[in-house]
């Protein structure tokens, strides 16, 4: 039995092996990318930073016309934090926070840059599964059967507010013209991190699409961290708060004493 089966399959297997390199080349264009720097230091003069993501599509055999339909999406994601969004309403004549909504694991920074609008690049479910676009980070909440329409709308308003405020801070960025082809295979994307960026591990995902299909993905890591004096202070404030507080008082006493010594008039 075994002998017979192998006999039948052997020519087919050989054929497959022979054509394998060819089909591989057709299906797998690769993408390579890197960052202008893998590390961003928050120093005392930090006012934000510019990052350039650049790379190349590895498939030189394609003709220029075909290469033109490549789509690239670059996603940069900062460490996830839990957030609370609060909404003000007028009470007793003043505007005060009256309702709130907590969000778990929202990236402190999220940028999505692409060669053209995301909706033209791939179907929403593909984008969502790969974490591309604001909708994948903060999905529009579905109105469940247990909610009133009003509650459902309120949840959507809170979600929209998070995106809106983060965008205004510069911590959420979407730019559907943000990835530029310098040549047929060489691309570049530039983005600015605001001064308020959180420190931590950032990930950079570069996706290569063609005709709505994900062809390749390349990942890079980016570290944002406070350094030197800024780091010392931040670490002290959260890890040794008592010592930090005592030193802050001591510095104040020294400044106060020095001021009266320097400016003494009597």
């Amino acid at each position: 039995m075994m002998q017979i089966r192998l006999h039948v399959f052997m020519p087919l297997l050989l054929l497959l092996l022979a054509t394998a390199p060819l089909t591989h080349a057709a299906a797998r264009e690769d993408i390579q990318s890197d960052l202008s720097s893998n590390e961003i230091a928050i120093e005392s003069n930090f006012t934000g930073a510019r990052i350039v993501v650049f790379g190349t599509i590895e498939d030189g055999r394609r003709s220029a016309e075909e290469a033109g339909i490549y789509d690239i999406a670059v996603v940069i994601r900062g460490p996830a934090k839990s957030l609370i969004s609060r909404r003000k309403s007028r009470m007793f004549g003043v505007w005060m926070n009256s309702s709130s909504h907590a969000f778990d694991d929202v990236p402190s920074f999220y940028a999505v840059l692409s060669t053209r609008p995301l909706s033209d690049i791939a179907k929403p479910d593909i984008l969502a599964s790969r974490g591309i676009g604001f909708n994948s980070v903060l999905p529009v909440p579905e109105i469940s059967a247990y909610q009133t329409v009003w509650e459902g709308e309120e949840a959507r308003d809170f979600r929209d507010a998070v995106i809106r405020i983060k965008q205004r801070e510069g911590n959420f960025i979407d730019d559907d013209r943000g990835v530029i082809f310098i040549s047929k295979t060489l691309f570049r994307a530039t983005l600015d991190l605001p001064a308020s960026v959180q420190d931590g591990q950032y990930s950079t995902d570069v996706f290569l699409f063609r005709s709505g299909r994900l062809l390749s993905l390349n990942q890079r890591k980016l570290t944002v961290h406070k350094v030197g004096f800024e780091r010392l202070l931040y670490t002290a404030a959260f890890d040794y708060p008592l010592l930090y507080g005592l030193i802050a008082v001591l510095v104040a006493v020294v400044v106060g004493l020095s001021a009266s010594a320097v400016f003494r008039r009597d």
Binding site: K81, S82, L83, I84, S85, R86, R87, K88, S89, R90, G93, V94, W95, N97, A102, D157, F158, A161, V162, R164, I165, K166
Partner: peptide, 13 residues
């Protein structure tokens, strides 16, 4: 007293 431009605020939990 005046209605703020942005009714929502964000804060770390």
């Amino acid at each position: 007293v005046l209605e703020p431009d942005e009714l929502y605020t964000l804060a770390p939990l």
